[in-house]
Computed example of a mutant assay.
Amino acid sequence: MPVSESPRIPVALSSSSVYPLGVAETFSMAEDLGYDGVEIMVTHRAETQQAEVLNSMVEKYGLPVMAIHAPTLLLTQQVWGSAWDKLHRSAALAKEVGAGVVVVHPPFRWQGNYASGFADGITRNEEETGIIFAVENMYPWRAGGREATMYLPHWDPVPEPYPHVTWDFSHAATAEADSYEAVRALGGRLRHVHLTDGWSNGFKDDHLVPGHGEQRVAETMELIGSADFAGAGFEGAVAVEVSTRTARKVGQREQMLAESLAFARKHLKQE
């Protein structure tokens, strides 16, 4: 490989992109469309929590699980017990299916000791498990023109001492953040990307097909795909995480996911 050529960055399909369809459909669509692997979001559905199910899909479709998204969303607070248990079980699942990354949201402010000890706990868990915990950027919650403090220490992981970060373009749009500048500031701490888009519209988290919003997605992806990003190239994966719930016509969901993959390949210079 020439010195100036960067390694191919894998592009995965998040299971959240095919919701309300399930794990089998995620793998099937990823294979049909030419994705390199999948990201599994752990939810109330048993199939997302079971290594034997996921490994059977890996064997059937020949695609790896590249990341596990821990059940740290507001809607999955009842999955897998306490906050730290969620992370421990997510790491165990990641190990069982061969994924090296767990995506995790920052704590909610009401989560007490978990929130206050989160940064140290993330570092400790990485050291103990050998799994990377990539903390995802979120956004402020706004109501009536006021901003509520929902996350501790903050919704923005850039200034926090996390060893690894996941960057989500839709969350950045809701937060009115500049993804290009944030990714450049993260440098080698950036370990995982949720490829999507959105509009700066207060609170709605759009998760649009990339290029359909106002984030600097193309420019940022080109930065990530450059051979000298962070001095050594990007070492993680890009996972398409777009909402396809508006798909009504036959093949419309697949079209959205194919367009997202093509966008990734183009701006990562992999065409």
Rank of each mutant, 00 (worst) to 15 (best):
E126K: 04
E259N: 13
L54F: 08
V58H: 03
D168M: 07
I68R: 01
R216A: 15
D206S: 08
L21D: 14
W141M: 14
E219V: 12
R184Q: 15
T129I: 08
Y139C: 12
A175T: 04
R265T: 07
E136M: 08
R253L: 11
V238H: 03
L73W: 13
Y180I: 10
V250E: 15
L93V: 11
L208T: 02
A239C: 14
I224N: 02
M138N: 04
Y19E: 10
N55R: 14
T174E: 06
G251T: 09
E31R: 15
D32Q: 15
S116A: 14
E241T: 10
P210I: 05
H69F: 09
G130F: 09
S6M: 07
A24M: 08
K266S: 11
M1E: 10
M1K: 06
R124L: 11
Y139E: 06
L33K: 03
G117Y: 05
V23Q: 04
G231T: 13
S16E: 12
V58F: 05
W199T: 12
F133D: 02
P10N: 08
P106E: 04
N137D: 13
V158M: 12
A237Q: 07
G121Q: 07
V65H: 03
L63V: 10
A99Q: 04
G145W: 05
I122H: 01
S16A: 15
F27V: 11
S14K: 03
A70H: 04
M29D: 08
S82D: 14
E127F: 00
I122P: 02
I122E: 04
V209G: 02
V183C: 11
P157S: 09
R142C: 08
S243H: 11
S16M: 15
A70V: 11
L87G: 03
A239W: 02
H207C: 10
D228R: 10
K266F: 07
